[in-house]
Structure formats: structure tokens, C-alpha cells
């Protein structure tokens, strides 16, 4: 019995280690090649012949062709702003659907659910010209509005989370004379740290990932590119040979803040998503 237990344990360890290696290999090579000194994108050997810091240096100093620092800053600004706005939207909409009862609530929830299935980039042309009508195209503000606008529909995880907070709390507060607004700000939100963190995380990451919306909105405005859009320019036919290793370095630099954020917030992420996505 004990032997069998140990055997399963060893097997599981072996399997987990193997999987961990598989999962880390691409990341490992990404990092290794960001230190490669030789140019080129398709090399015929696994490890670089010489290592260098130069790709990282080029990323931040060689700004004439690729203004990476500027794009990095743009993305950061957009992320922070859209993360604030989306979190606000998501919390407001999900709280209303979860705790408040009003006419048309079910219909609205169902409509939201269906609208969320709409493939976003089909909307791009229309969104672009709507933004243009109000004079916002090619600006970072436009990106913020677009990202948070599409986030508003992803309310269901947060709604599920709010559903798990006991109604008795609200009732007690109402008896004490608290308004619904007070309940939302003073009682529910402080109890909802996991879902707030989850929402913040998800909306913070979006601008670092998206490149299609950004390219449609920014078009020729190089100054306002985001990192995703900028890194893409590095691997076009003309540039990939000289810039592939710089691209890798850029990727690593982009990944670092998100990775750190994720590692520290992992606990809340799990709580938020399990509290929200699956219950209710």
C-alpha cells in the first residue's frame, strides 16, 4: 500500500516535471535568444554562439526606427487608464445585475450575454468612424475608450462573485438606513477584493496583447503606437533579420511587469475567477 502510494507520487512528480519543462522551453528560448549576438531569425543551432546585452541596449537607445520606450510608455498609460475605466464599468454593471432588481434586468443581462459573442474586430471600421466623428482617432484616449468599452460586457465573472456575497449583509445595512449607493461603496466593494483584482488584472493586460484594434485606430501615427504594434514592425520582411533578437528582448521586457503582477496577484485571481465564473 505504502509502496503503491510512493509509486504514484513519483509518477506524478515525473509527469509534473516533464510538463513544467515543456511549458518553460519556449520561454527559456525566448530569453536565451534575446541575448544572442548574431543576427537572423532562422538559425540552425539551438544556443547562441556569443551572448550580449546589446539587444536590450538597442531596444532603449536605437529609437530612430523603433521608438520602443515611447511605445512602452504609451501602452502603460493606456493600460492604467483603461484598466481603471473597465474595472469601474465591470463592477458597476455586474453589481447592478447581481444585487439590484429593476425592470428589464433579465432582458438586459441576456442581451449583454449575446452581444459579448460579437466578434470584436468586425466592429472596427464602425468604431473607427464613430471615434472620428468625435475627433478622437489616432489618440491614446480612443484606445482607452475602445478597450474599456469592450470590457463592459465581460461582467459575468464579477456578477457571479457578487452573487456569492450574502444578501443578509445588504438587508442589515438597509435597516440601518444605508442607501444602495452606500452599500455598494462601503460594504460590497471592500468584500470584493479578489474580483476587483481579477478585473484589474484582465483589463490591465488587454492593451499589451491587442494589435488589431490598435493598428486600425492608430494607422500612420507612429508616435502613438503600443508595444504590440511596434514589436510587429520589427519582424516584417525587411527587418526580421536585423531585429529578431531585439524583438525577443522587447518581448521579455513586456512580459516582466505582467509576469510580476500575475505572480503576486495569483491568489486573488484564483479566488476571483472561482468565486465568479463557476458559482451562482
Amino acid at each position: 500500500m505504502r509502496l503503491r502510494k510512493n509509486l504514484t507520487r513519483i509518477l506524478i512528480y515525473a509527469l509534473l516535471t516533464a510538463l513544467a519543462v515543456i511549458w518553460l522551453i519556449p520561454i527559456f528560448f525566448l530569453i536565451v535568444h534575446s541575448f544572442r549576438a548574431e543576427p537572423g531569425a532562422a538559425i540552425r543551432y539551438l544556443f547562441p554562439k556569443t551572448y550580449t546585452w546589446n539587444n536590450y541596449v538597442r531596444l532603449f537607445t536605437d529609437t530612430e526606427l523603433f521608438n520602443f520606450p515611447r511605445w512602452y510608455l504609451n501602452t502603460l498609460v493606456v493600460s492604467v487608464a483603461s484598466c481603471f475605466l473597465s474595472t469601474l464599468y465591470v463592477l458597476m454593471i455586474s453589481y447592478a445585475f447581481s444585487r439590484l432588481r429593476f425592470r428589464g434586468r433579465n432582458a438586459m443581462m441576456r442581451a449583454g450575454l449575446i452581444l459579448n459573442m460579437f466578434p470584436g474586430f468586425m466592429a472596427m471600421i464602425a468604431v473607427y468612424f464613430i471615434l472620428k466623428a468625435v475627433g478622437l482617432t489616432q489618440s491614446l484616449l480612443a484606445l482607452v475608450l475602445v478597450y474599456s468599452g469592450s470590457a463592459a460586457l465581460t461582467y459575468y465573472v464579477a456578477k457571479g462573485f457578487f452573487d456569492t456575497i450574502p444578501l443578509a449583509l445588504d438587508e442589515a445595512a438597509t435597516i440601518d438606513g444605508a442607501s444602495k449607493s452606500t452599500i455598494f461603496w462601503r460594504i460590497t466593494l471592500p468584500l470584493s477584493k479578489p474580483i476587483v483584482v481579477y478585473t484589474v488584472l484582465m483589463s490591465f493586460m488587454a492593451p499589451w496583447m491587442d494589435f488589431i484594434f490598435a493598428s486600425v485606430i492608430m494607422k500612420d501615427n507612429y508616435e502613438n503606437y503600443t508595444v504590440a504594434l511596434g514589436l510587429f514592425q520589427m519582424i516584417t520582411r525587411e527587418n526580421i533579420y536585423d531585429y529578431f533578437t531585439v524583438f525577443c528582448a522587447g518581448a521579455v521586457v513586456v512580459a516582466i511587469p505582467i509576469a510580476l503582477l500575475f505572480l503576486f496577484m495569483q491568489k486573488y485571481y484564483v479566488e476571483g475567477v472561482t468565486g465568479g465564473a463557476v458559482k451562482g
Binding site: G40, A42, I43, Y241
Partner: peptide, 14 residues
């Protein structure tokens, strides 16, 4: 990845 491949191919003689 045609372009990177031919460059690398010239490089290693393949």
C-alpha cells in the same frame, strides 16, 4: 519564414 530561412541557409551552406 522564407526570408530568414534562406539567409540562414546561405549562412550554413545548406
Amino acid at each position: 519564414e522564407y526570408d530568414p530561412s534562406i539567409i540562414a541557409g546561405f549562412g550554413d551552406g545548406s
